[in-house]
């Protein structure tokens, strides 16, 4: 008698993780603070006119590929302008420069996307950069609210040594130093009377991960863009996390992102890149992206932070 070969599946309940559609590139046309948005329609028009040549260049480099555009409004730290006033002004100013904003996002949605906090999910995915000598004996400090690329700057004070002779100054040292260090410490949040206040850098890192479509909550996509019909509301909280403004647009999430910014944002984005360099993607999502990309013949780096590009520019 021939015994049939048994195909043993150890786990009957397989993980289900939602797939999201992807553009080749998510192009962010800017990210302005609320005070910039107060400057009025002329300032916005000047801003988009300055960005437009870069956007055109990126588009021409991605001809025949799917590119979606987005814009994030900072209404997390202050919300002085209403969506009903600001959104039409933004759309008009972009259009005057020949640009279309496909998707508009609220920064506060990175902290709270209705029932789920993308920021909390990202925080759980942080695997800190270990300084040399880390063998796993001690767990990395989680509660500090800081991330660093180096040793010696965010070094904890040891009270027992307070009375001892002062230690010699020791320079900080970048964990992956070659010859000289560039040491960065990044604050992820602060505690306020109203609860935890996420830093701009951390929310911007979350925003990049939302655009890359790599966050899931128990397998569900965290943010799904929604169309908004009718006049825009008076409160930002009444809008979905990401609104699709354009009638027709390529998917919001993409294999790669590119962000066009003024040079004054360079520090924040250096912090964003440091954070993204310490975020581990859900292995199931990682495999999905790789599979989707290889099916389409798209090259996607394993390294998350290398999927994220920035262009810093002031007036041309």
């Amino acid at each position: 008698m021939t015994v049939p070969e048994l195909d043993a599946k150890a786990l009957t309940d397989r993980i289900r993780v939602e797939r999201v559609p992807r553009s080749h590139l998510s192009l962010e046309l800017g990210h302005l603070y609320m005070e910039d948005l107060l400057a009025g329609p002329d300032a916005l028009r000047r801003y988009f006119a300055g960005i437009a040549p870069w956007a055109e260049f990126v588009r021409s480099r991605h001809a025949a590929r799917r590119v979606s555009t987005c814009f994030m409004v900072d209404e997390y730290f202050s919300a002085v302008r209403k969506p009903a006033d600001l959104i039409p002004e933004l759309v008009e100013a972009a259009a005057a420069a020949g640009l279309t904003i496909d998707y508009l996002a609220r920064e506060s949605a990175c902290a709270d996307a209705g029932g789920v906090s993308p920021a909390e999910l990202v925080l759980e995915r942080v695997t800190p950069d270990p300084p040399p000598g880390t063998d796993g004996t001690r767990p990395p400090a989680r509660a500090s609210g800081w991330l660093t690329n180096s040793e010696g700057m965010a070094r904890p004070h040891r009270p027992s040594e307070a009375m001892a002779a002062p230690r010699r100054w020791e320079p900080p040292r970048q964990n992956d130093v070659r010859l000289h260090s560039i040491c960065l410490d990044v604050q992820l949040w602060s505690e306020t009377d109203g609860g935890r206040l996420w830093s701009c850098a951390f929310l911007s890192a979350v925003w990049q991960l939302l655009r890359l479509g790599v966050l899931r909550d128990e397998g569900r996509a965290v943010v799904v863009p929604e169309r908004w019909d009718g006049p825009y509301p008076a409160e930002w909280g009444d809008l979905p996390p990401v609104v699709r403004l354009a009638e027709r647009a390529h998917p919001f999430t993409a294999y790669r992102t590119m962000t066009l910014l003024e040079t004054r944002f360079a520090d924040v984005e250096a912090a964003v890149r440091l954070i993204l360099g310490q975020v581990a993607v859900d292995p199931v999502v990682r495999a999905q992206v790789a599979e989707q990309a290889s099916r389409e013949g798209v090259d996607v780096p394993d390294e998350l932070v290398r999927r994220v590009a920035h262009v810093f520019t002031d007036d041309l």
């Binding site: 786990l11 993980i15 695997t127 270990p130 040399p132 000598g133 880390t134 990395p140 909550d217 128990e218």
Partner: peptide, 25 residues
């Protein structure tokens, strides 16, 4: 945010997602 896998047979068995720990040693 990540899911736990589980099976009821031949006996109850559940597997956690896999947290990572960085090392340099």
């Amino acid at each position: 945010g990540e899911q736990v896998r589980h099976a009821g047979r031949p006996r109850a068995y559940a597997v956690s997602p896999a947290p990572l720990t960085g090392v340099d040693c």
